[in-house]
């Protein structure tokens, strides 16, 4: 299994990568939804961490796309916005775990 990180902030993306690699996981980063779609589709046992606020296609768009896959992988949405802003963006989407930034590492390791 692998972890795919779709996050436009280079600092957050790189530190997540290091952190996950430090836990012995295989991880990849993508600066936006478009480059994630261009790569090979994720495996069913992969995990996708996606920032809700992305330039271009939004994080919610990525989640919807993933949920339409035959065997949807696990999705964790991350966001630094307020709870109400998050709810507005993922309205109509179910089965998503949400982590608010700043991310606490215990939370991540629990989920991953």
């Amino acid at each position: 299994m692998a972890v795919h990180i779709v996050e436009d902030d280079p600092g957050v993306s790189d530190s997540l990568l290091m952190f996950l690699q430090g836990m012995g996981l295989v991880a990849y980063t993508y600066p936006d939804a478009e480059s994630f779609f261009e790569a090979d589709p994720p495996q069913p046992d992969d995990t996708i961490i996606v920032d809700l606020l992305l330039p271009g296609i939004s994080g919610a768009g990525v989640i919807r796309w993933l949920q339409e896959l035959k065997e949807p992988p696990r999705v964790i949405a991350i966001s630094a916005q307020s709870q109400s802003a998050i709810e507005k963006q993922i309205r109509g989407i179910s089965g998503v775990e949400i982590l608010r930034k700043p991310l606490s590492s215990e939370l991540i390791s629990q989920i991953v």
């Binding site: 902030d9 600092g11 957050v12 790189d14 530190s15 997540l16 290091m18 952190f19 690699q21 430090g22 836990m23 606020l53 630094a80 916005q81 930034k101 700043p102 991310l103 606490s104 590492s105």
Partner: peptide
Amino acid sequence: LAHELNQPLTAIMLYLQAASRS
């Protein structure tokens, strides 16, 4: 702006966790 501050704070926390784990 709070959002913008959360980004580096998240990164710092993850980098330091990665360092201490190693």
